[in-house]
């Protein structure tokens, strides 16, 4: 029993904190981005060509028939889901004039790789644009042990930039 004491103490110290996963609700994120005056949500239906191009970006067919977004002037905001290893990571992405203004992990459901939510990682996306080959115009350094979550965030960033182009025909 004596040998278990350090672990029991650690457990006791750890149990007095909060519930996991939701860092900010999507609606709160939208309100914050538009200073509590968000525009009405728009729906973008994905046509056949868009689905093909998004399949290239995501590595699988997009999960949705259409994507909801919020637009004011040249700024668009996207709430996207993409699975890291097993569970969807819900991410808010602000695109302004064709480049990422900010990216924020809103809900994280995986049991590992949660470090992708930290600003030291997400700030690498700020200012990123989409190249002709649908790749980001910069390299994003990953996080060891969070490879699949990093990959999911890169895909969502590319998807938001791609969809933003289609919101400004």
């Amino acid at each position: 029993m004596k040998s278990l004491a350090p672990l029991i103490l650690l457990l006791a110290a750890a149990t007095n904190t909060l519930a996991r996963d939701v860092y900010q609700s999507p609606s709160d994120f939208i309100s914050e981005v538009f200073a509590n005056n968000p525009p009405k949500a728009s729906l973008m239906w994905l046509n056949r060509a868009m689905k093909q191009e998004l399949t290239e970006i995501l590595g699988h067919r997009p999960n949705a028939l259409r994507v909801r977004y919020w637009k004011k002037k040249l700024k668009t905001v996207w709430i996207l889901d993409e699975i890291g290893k097993e569970h969807p990571i819900t991410t808010g992405i602000i695109v302004d004039q064709g480049k990422i203004q900010a990216i924020k992990v809103l809900i994280y459901r995986e049991s590992r790789g949660y470090e992708v939510r930290h600003p030291f990682f997400t700030e690498q996306f700020n200012g990123a644009r989409l190249q002709e080959d649908a790749q980001l115009d910069r390299s994003i350094d990953g996080i060891s042990g969070a490879t699949l979550s990093v990959r999911a965030l890169k895909k969502m960033a590319r998807m938001a930039l791609y969809l933003d182009k289609h919101s400004n025909p």
């Binding site: 949705a64 890291g84 969807p88």
Partner: peptide, 11 residues
């Protein structure tokens, strides 16, 4: 959309 959500990833 709801049916097809969460069907891709590692696993």
């Amino acid at each position: 959309d709801s049916d097809s959500a969460g069907k891709h990833g590692h696993g």
